[in-house]
Write a protein that binds this DNA or RNA. Sequence first.
DNA 1: CGATCCGTTGAATTACGTCAATAGACGTGG
DNA 2: CCACGTCTATTGACGTAATTCAACGGATCG
Lengths: 246, 246
Amino acid sequence: MVKLSPIVACGTCPIRHNAVCAKCDAEELVILEQAKSYKTLPAGSRLAEAGETLSYFSTIIEGCATISRTLEDGRRQTVGLLLPSDFIGRPGRATSPFDVEALTEVKLCRFERTTFEQLVTDTPHIATRLLTMTLDELDAARDWAVVLGRMTAREKVAAFLVSLARRQAGARGTATAGGRAVVHLPLSREAMSDHLGLTIETTSRQMTALRKDGLIETPTKREIHIPDFDALAFEAAEDDDGGPIV
Amino acid sequence: MVKLSPIVACGTCPIRHNAVCAKCDAEELVILEQAKSYKTLPAGSRLAEAGETLSYFSTIIEGCATISRTLEDGRRQTVGLLLPSDFIGRPGRATSPFDVEALTEVKLCRFERTTFEQLVTDTPHIATRLLTMTLDELDAARDWAVVLGRMTAREKVAAFLVSLARRQAGARGTATAGGRAVVHLPLSREAMSDHLGLTIETTSRQMTALRKDGLIETPTKREIHIPDFDALAFEAAEDDDGGPIV
DNA sequence: CGATCCGTTGAATTACGTCAATAGACGTGG
DNA sequence: CCACGTCTATTGACGTAATTCAACGGATCG
């Protein structure tokens, strides 16, 4: 089920100013235009497999994917959630240490790996932007370690909804703090649980508890309404003003 | 108790080939030589505080430090363990989102923040190396997320000892796989527990259990002997051949 | 209309946390 | 030198949050 998407120019690309190309000038963009190609993959596709060679590095234009590892006995932990403008691949290494799987249909902007590695070397604006993005991801990974290591199930679920709401609002350019917010869940309960380090049963129970406490509303299983964003953030044991700086 | 350490030339620096300067040529090193300064700080010092401005970016030459966050109610999670050659600071941002604390006396090679940010811009070899190091740290943070999210207390302790043994062996240039290994613990049980997302009691019990099972020997509380490294790695639920590629 | 998938809920189990007591290491001072 | 306080680590008894096992309900699909 792999289909070719209509060609999109970088100038009209929805993630132009957030992706790895964000800092590129018009001249550099011309080079990227020539090297890029688009690909749409269906939900459930493997975009990368731990240890396997990656032919392409990609940026997600649309859709959602997880970075995860599965232990031999089947335990799985999701270690990153990829949304539009996020980058898949690591210059200087041909393989990924984790699995990357599409949760929804995903539209990618791809570069052949070796081509991209050359671009990083030749184009300082790409290297700089990639460093910034990697540092942001590192901060996010460490923020998440606090959730995994020290939070209760209820706090984990609240923290996840809060974090997803912030990212989705950020992508739309809307605010979160204060009033209502809406989150669309691209993850199943199982995928959520793998991200939270919980079982699906515990995740489900905590969702129910948050709903009964009036902290969330669930018109459908994949749509979450947050009547009072700050109240939910409080449940997530947020220590400071407003969550990760990312 | 801050004392000045004897001046060390980059050429004889013990971490010359692993730190952020690793890829620099002789010419670039001259610039670094002029900009750097050394500082030794005692165990317990705060090298950075969450949200506070950093005047200096530093590389650890000797000693050990933790990156951590403490929640309002006192729960603490360590999200990174810094050993010699590790870098503290983030170009493009004046503050750290986490606390950084010295576990032992620490010897630092420091650059004024703004100076270093200029160096990153002007010196591609530093930018490249910093990107590689950040990507490695990101992989390590994600590896640790698997431990925090999905492993049992016993596996967590085993995974920590295995990972520390690998890093210490790597720094010495010795091998781990196969036979005996020795680990020096720069962390108290409390610091270990904060890293593992456990209580000190549980950590202590698991150490005792591993000892009773013959997987480790503890001549002193801070010195751990591993008679069969692979056996301990097996306890850490290692899925593949030999742990993180980092 | 049965089969399958996904999510929810209940009951029983357990791994880890909490509370508490104790012991060893270390330093200080009489 | 020993008495004392402090700090860290260990161990035991008990409590609990989350997992496990199991049943069930509502979609979706052939």
